[in-house]
Structures are given as structure tokens and as C-alpha cells.
């Protein structure tokens, strides 16, 4: 892995030197009290101690609403139009390791049988600069799902703070390599050793053990205990970096035209599984919550060999009913 030293001025120069017609820049910025990823931020906050943004950056790869095609009827002809796809490149600056890691996880499901061209194009057009994380609260559990604060999964380039003004820039992927060659050709190579702070991990759980327990406990009182408190909103799924369910609907603009559109959907909604007949196989919040945990820690692991979770803790921090998925998995794993 090639490593260079980069200072804050060089990062600022990089941002201003990227041609605005070809590149969008997504970086954390502070909006009042909370952090958020903001497009074309003038003042990105490169702060490894910042808490995670309130919503992950997945909407820049898997938009909350995306048109698949437009249709139009004239006389007896129906014509279809492809939506225009912005071929702009996206630089994500200072992505949390728990956010960056979501892209390879999502890629698996978006390329499993049908290849989602929109998602793939967006990923291919992006460069992710990850930033080592020094934040942790009660809701975080990235170490329990195989990640850590210096994990480079999903990043093309990774920054580790070296001192007040300097970062160690590690080139992680080929895409990252060509980006550095093109836009940062004059960096000094780093030969020293990085100081990596130990992560205090207060809640480790064994996700392999969790998987087996979930598979064996389709009926268990734990689901009812959580399900009765869960109010059935989709806050958890929509802020999650890895939740990827969507709904496809048609919307008309007038009697003769419209579009087919893909919108975020979530398994916590009662209507998610409701059949046209009126029958609903997941007819209680208990079953819906079980689905959420099972999909993340059992089904996805079964199919793709990894859990559908990066331990970012957003679902827990924002849950209006105070449900902590970490606590549930923790208690499962420690049974």
C-alpha cells in the first residue's frame, strides 16, 4: 500500500482545483447541532472526532427516489424515454469507515442476479476518501461486525491523522491510485509509522454465533418484546447505510404520460408485505422487527458471507422508541 503525507492546505487545494463541471464534492459539514454530508461543501469538516452524520451517504448512490423510465402515449403509440444520467464524478471526502464500508456490501445485492446499472455507474464514478474515526458512543458497534476505526473497506483513499495539520494518505484501490496520480502528483511519500489508537470496544458480539441463534429462533419472545415497543416507522432503514429495499411505482404527469419510479421502502412498514388480496404475511410489528434483524444478521450472511450492517449506530441514535439493535444482537450473542 502506497502511503503519502498530505497537509490540510493540500486538501483544500485539491477541493478547489477539481473542475466543478466534472466533479461533485460530498463532505461532512455542520448544520446547526448535527453533522451531515453536504454536496459541494465550501467548508468541509475533516474531523475524525465528529459524530456520524444523521443520515448515511447512500442516497448519492441509491437515491431516495429514482426514475427508471418515462412513458408517453400518442395516438396508439407508446414511447419510452430513458432518464438522463448525470455522468458527473463524485468525490466523497472524509467518509466514516462505517459509511465507506457500506458500498461493497450494497454492491453485492445490486449485482447478485440483476446488475443495477444506475448503482454501478454511480459507484464507478466515485472516489471515496475515508477518514480514520475517533468517535464512539453507546450506539456504535463497528468492531462487532468486523470493522474498526481504521478500516479501509470501501475507501479508495484513506486518511489517518498524523499530527495537527498532516494526514497519512494511504492509497487503497486502483481507482484511488489513478486519482492520486492525476490530482495529487506532488505528495511526499510517507515512510514512518502511524500511531493507531486502540479502540475501546465495550460491546463485542460474535456475529457468527448471532447468525446461528437467529436461524434457530424464528419463534422467540425476544421478537415480541421488541416488536411491541417498535412503532413501525422507517427511520432506522432510511438512515441506514446498508438498507436497500425499494418500491417501484408508476406516477402520471397527465393522462398520457408518466414515469416508472423507484423509491426507498422499508420492511418496518405494515404495507411493505401487504398483498393485493389484503392478506399480510408479516401482519405484526413483531414479525417485521424479526425480519429486520434476521435480514441483517442471518439471511444476508447466509447468502453473501457478511452481515448487512456496518455498526454505525444511526438506527439506534435516531429511534423514536429507543430501540437499540446493538443491544438486541448483543443479548442474542451472549445467550
Amino acid at each position: 500500500m502506497k502511503e503519502f503525507i498530505i497537509n490540510t492546505d493540500e486538501i483544500a487545494n485539491l477541493i478547489s482545483s477539481l473542475p466543478a463541471d466534472k466533479w461533485d464534492i460530498l463532505a461532512p459539514a455542520k448544520d446547526g447541532k448535527s453533522f451531515d454530508y453536504v454536496l459541494s461543501s465550501d467548508k468541509p469538516i475533516i474531523n475524525s472526532e465528529a459524530p456520524p452524520s444523521k443520515i448515511s451517504f447512500k442516497e448519492y448512490f441509491f437515491p431516495k427516489s429514482e426514475t427508471l423510465f418515462y412513458y408517453k402515449r400518442e395516438a396508439n403509440e407508446i414511447s419510452l424515454t430513458e432518464p438522463k444520467f448525470a455522468e458527473k464524478k463524485l468525490l466523497v471526502l472524509a467518509a466514516k469507515p462505517c459509511d465507506a464500508a457500506s458500498l461493497p456490501i450494497l454492491s453485492k445485492v445490486f449485482n447478485w442476479d440483476y446488475k443495477d446499472e444506475f448503482f454501478n455507474k454511480r459507484v464507478n464514478n466515485s472516489v471515496i476518501i475515508g477518514l480514520s474515526c475517533a468517535y464512539s458512543d453507546e450506539s456504535c458497534f463497528c468492531t462487532s461486525v468486523g470493522l474498526d476505526r481504521n478500516n479501509t473497506k470501501g475507501s479508495d483513499i484513506f486518511l489517518t491523522p498524523f499530527n495537527d495539520k498532516q494526514y497519512v494518505l494511504s492509497v487503497v484501490s486502483d481507482k484511488g491510485d489513478s486519482f492520486v496520480k492525476e490530482f495529487l502528483p506532488n505528495l511526499t511519500e510517507f515512510t514512518g509509522t502511524k500511531e493507531t489508537k486502540e479502540f475501546i470496544d465495550n460491546k463485542p458480539f460474535d456475529y457468527k454465533k448471532t447468525k446461528d441463534w437467529i436461524a434457530a429462533n424464528f419463534e422467540n419472545k425476544i421478537w415480541a418484546e421488541t416488536g411491541e415497543v417498535c412503532i413501525g416507522c422507517a427511520q432506522c432503514a432510511f438512515v441506514c447505510p446498508t438498507c436497500h429495499c425499494f418500491d417501484i411505482v408508476d406516477e402520471n404527469c397527465d393522462l398520457n404520460c408518466g414515469r416508472r419510479i423507484k423509491n426507498w421502502d422499508a420492511c418496518q412498514f405494515g404495507v411493505f408485505t401487504k398483498h393485493a388480496s389484503g392478506h399480510n404475511p408479516r401482519n405484526s410489528q413483531e414479525k417485521r422487527y424479526r425480519q429486520r434483524v434476521s435480514h441483517k444478521f442471518d439471511y444476508y450472511y447466509e447468502k453473501f458471507g457478511e452481515v448487512l450492517c456496518t455498526g454505525c449506530g444511526r438506527c439506534t441514535r435516531g429511534c423514536p422508541a429507543g430501540i437499540d439493535i446493538g443491544e438486541i444482537v448483543f443479548s442474542i450473542s451472549n445467550q
Binding site: G232, C233, Q235, F238, N263, W264, F269, P320, A321
Partner: peptide
């Protein structure tokens, strides 16, 4: 708004 309907459910 992301239509998570948390406002409604809560």
C-alpha cells in the same frame, strides 16, 4: 423529507 413516516408513527 425522506418519507420514513416517523412523524406519523410516533
Amino acid at each position: 423529507c425522506i418519507k420514513c413516516y416517523a412523524c406519523r408513527q410516533v
